[in-house]
Each structure stands twice: as C-alpha cells, then as structure tokens.
Amino acid sequence: GKMTGIVKWFNADKGFGFITPDDGSKDVFVHFSAIQNDGYKSLDEGQKVSFTIESGAKGPAAGNVTSL
C-alpha cells in the first residue's frame, strides 16, 4: 500500500536519492523515473512524499512517488 515519508536527499544530476519512511523502516532508494509529475522529475530534501515499495533489481525501491 501507500506509505509516506520525507526525502532524505536527492541528487538531481544523477537522478536518484533516498526517502526516509514515516514508519521508521529502512531508507528507500528512489529513482527519478518513479516520480509522478509532468514536469521536471526531481525531489527536494525534506519534502514530504507518498510512495509504494516496488522490488527492483537492486532491492526495494520507491514507486508512484507523489509530493504531498
């Protein structure tokens, strides 16, 4: 299901970062391709987001990332 969290950091040049889930679980990798907006796909440190957990090739990653 949907989770919420805070963006820990995001490197716009490399197109990835990490989200710290509100439930205290392990930080989740986020790739820019998972960001659900029409414009420039980037996130800001400290931004609140909702997301799902998808299993990627390198382990769990955030999917369906939407800013709240």
Rank of each mutant, 00 (worst) to 15 (best):
G1I: 11
M3D: 05
M3I: 12
T4N: 09
T4F: 12
G5C: 00
G5A: 01
I6C: 13
V7C: 08
K8P: 01
K8W: 00
K8C: 04
W9H: 05
W9G: 04
N11R: 15
N11I: 04
A12Y: 09
D13C: 14
K14D: 09
K14G: 07
G15T: 02
G15M: 03
G15V: 01
G15W: 01
G15N: 03
F16Q: 06
F16G: 04
G17N: 00
I19L: 08
T20P: 00
T20C: 14
D22E: 09
G24H: 11
G24M: 07
G24N: 08
G24A: 08
S25T: 12
S25M: 06
S25F: 06
K26M: 09
D27V: 02
D27E: 11
V28G: 01
F29I: 06
V30N: 02
V30S: 02
V30M: 06
H31R: 05
H31V: 01
H31S: 06
F32Q: 12
F32N: 12
S33R: 08
S33V: 03
S33A: 06
S33P: 04
A34H: 06
A34M: 04
A34Q: 13
Q36F: 04
Q36P: 05
Q36M: 14
N37I: 11
N37H: 13
D38F: 07
D38E: 13
D38I: 08
Y40F: 12
Y40E: 14
S42F: 11
L43S: 01
L43P: 03
L43F: 05
E45D: 13
G46M: 04
Q47C: 08
S50L: 06
F51M: 04
F51I: 00
T52S: 11
T52V: 13
I53M: 13
I53Q: 07
E54W: 10
E54L: 14
E54M: 13
E54D: 07
E54S: 12
S55A: 15
S55C: 10
G56S: 13
A57C: 11
A57Y: 10
K58F: 07
G59Q: 05
A61Y: 12
A62F: 01
A62S: 02
G63A: 14
V65F: 00
T66Q: 14
T66M: 14
T66L: 10
S67G: 12
S67H: 13
S67D: 11
L68E: 11
